[in-house]
């Protein structure tokens, strides 16, 4: 950048590394996806649902290791989509409170996953899934992420209004001819897919915070849907990029650093909350 001093150059130093440029691209794609999905998840009061899906990835990994797969991604994906659809189904038919149902599913999935993975004291090699590593993303991963981003955007385009109406009042939505179960299933499966795929880069521990925090902050500020969704996406992007750069200079895990930045925005939103 012409005119920049030494300090200015230093601020852009991280961009000279290929892995950082790839990580930046990945963060931008993930932030877009998480922003869009997060706004819908919060609308549909599914924050606990997506948390359960994130934790259940451990079971997916365990199933993958039992099957002897080198890369457990497909096992994780299949298991999380299965679990998502199961929760949506139980939610429709069970008389129990949905919180309890999800907590039960999560307890079972996590305990089972940890049991299998820890057999013989070998859990350490799986800790990378807890924290995630976005700096290790490969060009092939990026291509896969871009394809997922396209597919998910299409699904969120088609489901946004329907999920919003269902979250608003599901009997009323049904009275308008909406096939509530179908759209909920499609949406839940897509959320499960993006949460699960992201886990290798951002980690089980913080993935749900990345999904929920920007939407929760935007909800405090926006008065209509347009402002809400675009503000969520913007906050998600800013937290993602700022968090990534900060994690480079502080040598911290990117996912957790992004969440701390997003938390900062959430606290700010509480201060300037609309009345």
């Amino acid at each position: 950048m012409p005119g920049d001093g030494v300090l200015g150059l230093a601020a852009w130093e991280w961009l000279q590394y290929g892995f950082m440029r790839q990580a930046l691209l990945a963060v931008v794609l993930l932030s877009w996806l998480f922003g869009l999905a997060g706004s819908m998840v919060v609308n549909a009061r599914m924050a606990f649902f997506s948390d359960a899906i994130g934790h259940a990835a451990l079971t997916g990994i365990a199933i993958g290791s039992l099957l002897g797969l080198g890369n457990p991604l497909w096992a994780m994906l299949l298991f999380s989509i299965f679990l998502a659809l199961a929760i949506v189904w139980v939610r429709r038919v069970a008389a129990a409170s949905i919180d309890t149902v999800i907590a039960l599913f999560m307890a079972l999935a996590v305990a089972w996953g940890v049991m299998i993975l820890s057999r013989g004291g070998g859990f350490n090699k799986y800790t990378r899934y807890l924290i995630g590593d976005i700096l290790g993303i490969s060009p092939q991963d990026l291509l896969g992420l871009a394809i997922l981003a396209l597919a998910a955007t299409a699904v969120f385009y088609v489901t946004y209004n329907r999920i919003a109406l269902t979250g608003f009042n599901s009997s009323w939505a049904r009275s308008r001819g909406l096939k509530v179960g179908l759209w909920q299933g499609l949406f839940a499966a897509m959320v499960a897919a993006i949460v699960t795929v992201s886990i290798q880069w951002v980690g089980v521990l913080v993935v749900n915070s990345m999904l929920i925090l920007p939407a929760a902050a935007a909800r405090n500020l926006a008065a209509d849907v347009r402002a809400y969704v675009w503000l969520t996406v913007a906050l998600s992007l800013i937290s993602g990029v700022v968090g990534l750069i900060a994690s480079y200079y502080w040598a911290t895990a990117s996912g957790a650093t992004i969440v701390i930045v997003a938390m900062g925005f959430f606290l700010l939103s509480l201060i300037c909350k609309r009345r």
Partner: peptide, 29 residues
């Protein structure tokens, strides 16, 4: 319906509700 149960803090305008009920194109567009 009877007294609607919904989140009164939700960022949702009357126009948004019409858009969501009558259109496929997401209300944020």
């Amino acid at each position: 319906p009877q007294k609607m149960e919904f989140d009164a803090t939700a960022p949702l305008s009357v126009l948004d509700l019409f858009t969501q009920a009558l259109r496929l194109r997401p209300a944020w567009l």
